[in-house]
Design a binder for these strands. Sequence first.
DNA 1: CTGAAAGCGCTTACAG
DNA 2: CTGAAAGCGCTTACAG
Lengths: 307, 307
Amino acid sequence: MRISEEMVRHIQSIIKKTGYIPNRAAASLRTGKTHVIGLIVEDIANSFFASLAKSVEKAAAKVGYRVVYGSTENNDGRGNDLIQLLAKQVDGFLIAPSIGMKTSVQALKKSRKPLVLIDRYFPGEEIPFALVDNYAGVRKATECLIKKQKKQIAFVNIATEQVQMQERERAYVEALQQNGLFQKKLLLRLPYYQDKAQYEPRIHQFLRKHPEIDAMIFATNYLGMFGIKALKDLDIAIPKQVAVFSFDDTDLFRFSSPAISVISQPVQEIAGQAMRLLLEQMNSGAKKTESGEGVLVPPELILRNSV
Amino acid sequence: MRISEEMVRHIQSIIKKTGYIPNRAAASLRTGKTHVIGLIVEDIANSFFASLAKSVEKAAAKVGYRVVYGSTENNDGRGNDLIQLLAKQVDGFLIAPSIGMKTSVQALKKSRKPLVLIDRYFPGEEIPFALVDNYAGVRKATECLIKKQKKQIAFVNIATEQVQMQERERAYVEALQQNGLFQKKLLLRLPYYQDKAQYEPRIHQFLRKHPEIDAMIFATNYLGMFGIKALKDLDIAIPKQVAVFSFDDTDLFRFSSPAISVISQPVQEIAGQAMRLLLEQMNSGAKKTESGEGVLVPPELILRNSV
DNA sequence: CTGAAAGCGCTTACAG
DNA sequence: CTGAAAGCGCTTACAG
């Protein structure tokens, strides 16, 4: 590094004067690095994924990476297309995979493409992941309701094999079982609808069928949203008649009256951990890559006026 | 095109068997096209921009483009950095510019980089844009309130020179003036806060100072959000004591009780028009580019229970 | 240490 | 019409 400061300044002034900007495509062709990462989520318009996208963008920008995104809408085909499409264009992936993306994700891993799963993961597969501790979150919420003497606690979930939803449900089931309170009929599993408004009549119907319910936990933000709507439409008082928890924190829950208690995901922390794991892989080069380190970020139980 | 179908099938089976994927970086270097577009918004975590991002992604995917995004948070420096950073890496830009990005945007235009402004634009500059008709939206909302015999209609805005906010305000002012109802003291301009929670005390204070207010229009979704919170905290009945309109439709407004009437932006239409204008430029090649066609999409006034 | 040359993987103008 | 060759703009191994 025997270059004088003067020369450095001189060159930089020329760079500025001529407006030289290196051609990334050329550098990319030569080095094989694109300095772009691919973010594949379920739905970029969902407040959780939108916040995540913002945190990911910030974390990526800090280390010189750009982010391209894509929404799968839990459609396997679309997800696999996205992976295929982006595989050669990104240095690494952050993916919230649907079940049917397992094969493509495995192929990605086999091809040694840096990759971190977010929001969910494939149990048994040695693929790094960063997500909230779903079990701990719902467990805490359920126990909170039990402590409040609730006896008929319902759980509304999406019918899916996705591990994060399974874990949320398992926490609910186990907490109730250990207190002798579990009743299968109070566990509602609904299909994944593209059009979220369809959840409202389904939950409405469920509530009419089970007037004994005195507490509810909704497994996602949109279930919570439409669940609360259904409760209000039926003139069921929150929390007097039915106490409510929802997974995910959103403006709607914060501003609802009563304000809704939630299991909040520390989005920034999740994004930060995911980027850390991704950078580890991207920078490891020929070094052996840690195979399959997973990070479970503790959720935050936010108690508002709905319990 | 004298290639037999058989040969086509044969080649394609080899492509599939060997897993050949063209290297975009090489093609990009050769052709100068990246097939990536840059989406620069104010805040990807804001529900309006998140929805827009989703629609843009869909529209772009349909014509073989990927999207990289960046949030300016209305910070000129960040916005200019984003433009600089992405200029050589994208075939075109969709930008919601802050005021201080005018020079970089002009430079982009001068360099003949395909470019469409969204959500706002620079009056007098011949740069294509696609956005909602802000004036028409607020004008309709204001006239609706006047028809309901409201006499003390307040308007809460962000203090900015951004044209979309100016237009919203102008529509309010002119509608009231033409009915002899305008009062300067009922027009509140607040600074742009990164931390949106800061709006609540400011609006709270404004409401206490002006108990005569019988209707309010909030110029953005976050102002509406915190405005409603302030109204509720002060036990002001909506719409009985104060009727409410907010710009932008969000889950929160739909599910609020009472449900909030809004000036809704047809996000899909805006994204579609923006992509259309961008594609026109990207495909025009050496042909003369239409200079500065702008599209104003009509807003939808959604009447709920807050007026 | 320095500078010229090779080569990344495409596309396309051009020679045959 | 076909096939070989040039060249996009970088980075880096290598000859001098």
